[in-house]
């Protein structure tokens, strides 16, 4: 056979192989699926993505393998732009944090969640107002009022990253109460909790999983949770309290609500069959007992949406972020 002919035959055989799965009814990945994390190693999104990957591998939920790739540059912009630019590629997934909304608004990097295809909301991450256990505060308003008395900027609030979820909650509290806090950004949730234990700051809005160890050791205490309802986990965490025993901030007179999306998206321009494949896959993950355990460990809000409902939720949440960030003055020059 002449080389040219051989190449043509090889190409034909290759095309045939590539087309094979399409002949079946349902779509399936034909190569390794890349799972992008728009954040660094060790954070909440990273843990969840790697956990999903390990569950998929352990229970053989997918024929092809899944690899996790961190693209944290520019507050996650790098990861989002990568997925935006992979239009039509069904072998890419991305897990989101609140930086899906905040990064384009705060930095002016051109992307929007509408450039991506929503697949599945996995859970919502809760935020709790924490203070050092040695402080006399009994309720959220005790603390807020005390800060008011001390004067503007005297209470220091530590959080993860800047102009992201923690700082947005801080800004929302300021807007509701008229207090002025000094927000200090740190690299990770663990460091934030330790700053509070060491009394270098007055409060944090750590996720449950970031502060639970210090709570159990009696170093920190929770004042309220920034959700519409109490967290449903009634197993005792400390000697006397469970996650359920933490009141909502609203019931305490601090009318601020915030939960963070832990959701999965795909690049734009993919077919409905391809989206459906991943929706089914992630549903299978969510049914696993290991997943339920993981949810309980992190005291997640287990709301899980997909399809139209998911899209509507994201759109609503985006509008809320725009309003909050505008009021706080976090918008980058030039972004609308």
């Amino acid at each position: 056979m002449k080389p040219k002919l051989m190449a043509a035959a090889a190409a034909f055989a290759g095309a045939l192989l590539a087309a094979w799965p399409l002949a079946g009814e349902a779509w399936e990945p034909t190569k390794t699926v890349e799972f992008i994390i728009p954040a660094g190693t060790g954070g909440g999104a990273d843990q969840m993505a790697r956990y999903i990957q390990s569950l998929v591998a352990k229970h053989h939920l997918m024929k092809q393998s899944m690899v996790v790739v961190n693209k944290a540059g520019g507050a996650g912009a790098e990861g989002f732009l990568d997925v935006k630019n992979a239009k039509g590629d069904p072998h890419k997934l991305i897990i989101t944090l609140s930086n899906l909304f905040t990064t384009p608004l705060a930095t002016g990097v051109p992307f929007n969640w509408r450039d991506l295809t929503p697949v599945q909301m996995m859970a919502l991450d809760e935020f709790v107002l924490w203070v050092n256990a040695s402080k006399p505060y009994k309720t959220a308003m005790d603390y807020i009022n005390d800060c008011k008395k001390l004067g503007p900027g005297k209470c220091k609030m530590a959080g993860t990253g800047s102009k992201q979820e923690d700082q947005i909650i801080t800004a929302a509290i300021e807007q509701k109460t008229g207090d002025k806090f000094t927000y200090i950004p740190f690299k990770g949730g663990g460091a934030v909790a330790v700053q509070l234990v060491g009394n270098h700051v007055e409060s944090t809005v750590n996720n449950p999983i970031e502060a639970v160890a210090q709570w159990r050791a009696g170093k920190l205490k929770p004042l309220c949770v920034f959700d519409t309802e109490r967290m449903p986990y009634k197993a005792k965490i400390t000697g006397t309290m469970s996650w359920y025993d933490i009141p909502t901030c609203k019931s305490q007179g601090l009318d601020v609500e915030y939960v963070m999306l832990r959701g999965i998206f795909m690049p734009g321009g993919v077919t409905p069959e391809q989206v459906q494949y991943y929706v089914d896959l992630l549903q299978k993950v969510r049914q696993l007992p290991e997943w339920k355990e993981f949810m309980a460990t992190g005291a997640f809000n287990q709301t899980a949406l997909n399809g139209k409902a998911y899209e509507e939720w994201v759109a609503k949440e985006e509008a809320r972020h725009v309003a909050l960030m505008k009021a706080a003055g976090f918008m980058a020059a030039g972004s609308k």
């Binding site: 090889a10 190409a11 290759g14 192989l17 190569k31 390794t32 890349e34 690899v67 790739v69």
Partner: peptide, 14 residues
Amino acid sequence: QVPLPKGPLEALLG
């Protein structure tokens, strides 16, 4: 499982 850049040959070999 560290993905490195791949080209036409790898695609052909699947």
